[in-house]
Nucleic acid binder design. Structure first.
Length: 273
DNA sequence: CTCCAGGCTTTAG
DNA sequence: CTAAAGCATGGA
């Protein structure tokens, strides 16, 4: 099964390479993308971007295709910030994904003080080791592990897969989620959710914001990492050094659009568009 | 060799 | 309360 969408506002490279997702790879004419226990093949042919999958409804929502990103870009450009306007112009095809909650929690715990290529490698090895082998029209693959599977391993297991000192964060949080679940997090607003996430081992302010934004659709979150901090000083002329204050600066500036703006900025800075 | 990567926890003041 | 040390790993 397949569907297609205007490629101007759905560019697979922009969507996948902007840093919000760690499980995808070049495949045929485009990319193969994985989310939890599902996969799809996405590629662009001229004016249309095509998604093929056994789970079309899931990926229609995953790629946030209900939302009109021409309006998002219009709003972002209305702030009159040159660096942001340029970023939007160069990354028109970017969209924020609606990703799996638990996958985001573990993935961004791994991401701390780490670089994207190595994050991808660690996650890939964890999936191969603990994920359910799953068949798909594009070949078998390993699903992202359930919290129960992750909770069955001790820190040494994650250390052996290259997770470094984050090993204990992964096993601790997996055991907590295996016991409590995450359904109680779903109805919270951004502030409540962020506050709750901060009580998990290995989740601090930045990781919590990424989980809120990418896993729970909280588009008023604005994660501040080393790239955003660099951009704040080099391109916004900022003088603050405290990350929580930098976060407050950006969220008060961009409000409900903070999450979208953050992603355009992060992508433009890191990929040097 | 040092520095850095989508930072957090722990400890000291 | 804020500030800083310590932390695994691999690539530049």
């Amino acid at each position: 099964m397949k569907f297609d969408y205007d490629s101007t506002y759905f560019n697979p490279t922009d969507v996948l390479e902007c840093g919000q997702i760690f499980r995808f790879e070049p495949f045929k004419e485009g990319y193969r993308v994985y989310s939890a226990d599902k996969d799809c093949y996405v590629h662009t042919e001229g004016a249309r971007t095509i998604v093929e999958s056994d789970h079309p409804d899931y990926f229609y929502n995953f790629f946030d295709l209900e939302r009109d990103y021409s309006e998002i870009i219009k709003m972002a450009e209305s702030f009159g910030v040159t660096f942001l306007t340029e970023a939007c112009h160069k990354a028109k095809g970017l969209r924020l994904l609606n990703q799996n909650r638990e996958e985001m929690i573990y993935s961004f715990i791994i991401s701390q003080n780490n670089n994207i290529p190595r994050i991808k490698g660690i996650i890939s090895r964890i999936c191969a080791g603990l994920g359910q082998k799953t068949d798909s029209p594009f070949g078998d693959f390993y699903a992202f592990p359930t919290s129960a599977a992750l909770a069955s391993k001790e820190p040494e297991y994650y250390k052996a897969l290259g997770a470094g000192y984050r090993d204990v964060f992964l096993s601790d949080t997996a055991k907590r989620i295996a016991a409590e679940g995450v359904s109680h997090l779903e109805d919270m607003n951004y502030d409540e959710l962020r506050k709750t996430l901060l009580t998990y081992k290995g989740i601090g302010p930045k990781v919590a914001d990424c989980i809120c934004l990418f896993g729970f659709g909280k588009r008023d979150a604005f994660p501040v990492d080393t790239w955003i901090e660099k951009l704040y000083h080099e391109d916004f002329g900022g003088t603050l050094t405290d990350r929580s204050k930098i976060n407050a600066y950006f969220t008060s500036l961009f409000g409900a659009y903070s999450g979208y703006v953050q992603q355009y900025l992060f992508y433009a800075k890191r990929a040097n568009l």
